[in-house]
């Protein structure tokens, strides 16, 4: 099947990629699933959006998606951020699939920087856009070296780095893209999600796929897989906590964005996961600013 544009000029294959490219990506995905956390090199294609803007995630989604899928795309947890809108429109156009903002109805969720608050279910696929897939890259810029470290399971350097943080700052200074160890073997970059989301990766019911287009790597975590954030006995891994609940839906225990309200220090904290927040509000949950904001708006 090919998709024709309105003017009949250009034609694309279903989901944009040609079948040979899809096969190549599909093979990489299968090896990724078979070796959880290992970065499978793949011949990433040039996509009609810039490198660094989700080309890896887009290629993974394009290789996986079928006409019966329902796609959700989020960026920073929100469905309406411009790049999420752009990627969602891309698939609506080249694959003619149904799209949604509802986490529960989506069969494929492509994300940049967040994991939805709502627990993912068996059968769902979470596709992460990854800028730098190599967790050791900032410690050792050379691929030839980091590949050896993974081969030998030699991750001492990462522990040294985290420990230096503690010595210098009293904290592990990594707040996002916090490294995890998968099935006790590969140290893996979870993509730049806040470490708040790391525990959601552990024993998830959903299949998690990671695509790094510019760096040409695909990796995966099958469902029900052990994903442990690196830490130390005396400095156990902990996630961010927020003092206030969401100002709109009063949710506790979710990740919040700080919204600046004026130039006098006024600010509010609201859910980063827009779908989660909307659903709670529909369910009658009201945050302390929900009413006030309406009055202001009127």
């Amino acid at each position: 099947m090919t998709i024709h544009t309105d003017d009949g000029l250009a034609t694309y294959n279903f989901a944009y990629l040609d079948e040979q490219t899809k096969r190549m990506i599909r093979r990489a995905i299968l090896k990724g699933i078979a070796i959880p956390g290992y970065q499978v090199p793949f011949a990433s294609r040039e996509m009609p959006m810039p490198y660094g803007w989700g080309t890896g995630g887009v290629q993974v989604t394009a290789a996986v998606i079928g006409p019966d899928d329902v796609l959700k795309v989020i960026d920073q947890g929100a469905d309406d951020t411009t790049n999420a809108v752009s990627i969602r429109n891309f698939f609506a156009k080249v694959a003619e699939v149904e799209t949604t903002t509802d986490t529960a109805t989506a069969s494929i969720i492509q994300t940049r920087h967040r994991i939805p608050e709502e627990k993912l279910k068996e059968g769902q696929i979470l596709v992460y856009q990854v800028p730098i897939p190599e967790p050791l890259r900032f410690l050792e810029p050379r691929e030839t070296e980091t590949r050896k470290m993974h081969a030998l399971s030699e991750y001492g350097l990462m522990h040294v780095k985290l420990y230096e943080d503690i010595a210098k700052n009293g904290h592990i200074a990594t707040t996002y893209a916090y490294p995890v160890k998968v099935e006790g073997r590969y140290v893996m970059d979870p993509s730049p999600t806040p470490k708040f989301d790391n525990p959601k990766m552990h024993m998830s019911d959903a299949l998690q796929l990671f695509g790094a287009g510019r760096e040409k790597r695909i990796y995966a975590i099958p469902p029900h897989t052990d994903v442990v954030s690196l830490d130390f006995e005396d400095y156990p891994f902990e996630v961010q906590t927020f003092v206030e609940p969401c100002a709109l839906c009063a949710a506790h225990g979710v990740y919040l964005d700080e919204v600046i309200l004026d130039d006098k220090g006024g600010r509010m904290f609201v859910c980063s996961d827009t779908d989660h927040c909307e659903k709670r509000r529909e369910g009658g949950h009201r945050g302390h600013l929900a009413g006030d904001a309406r009055e202001t708006a009127q």
């Binding site: 810039p50 490198y51 660094g52 920073q76 707040t175 730049p192 708040f196 961010q240 964005d257």
Partner: peptide
């Protein structure tokens, strides 16, 4: 340069979730 410009320019995409994590720390 297509790779380079993409990655340099991607910094203009929203990063507020990660920034929030840094702010907090």
């Amino acid at each position: 340069n297509v790779q380079a410009t993409g990655f340099v320019e991607h910094l203009k995409l929203p990063h507020y979730v990660d920034f929030q994590a840094e702010l907090d720390l």
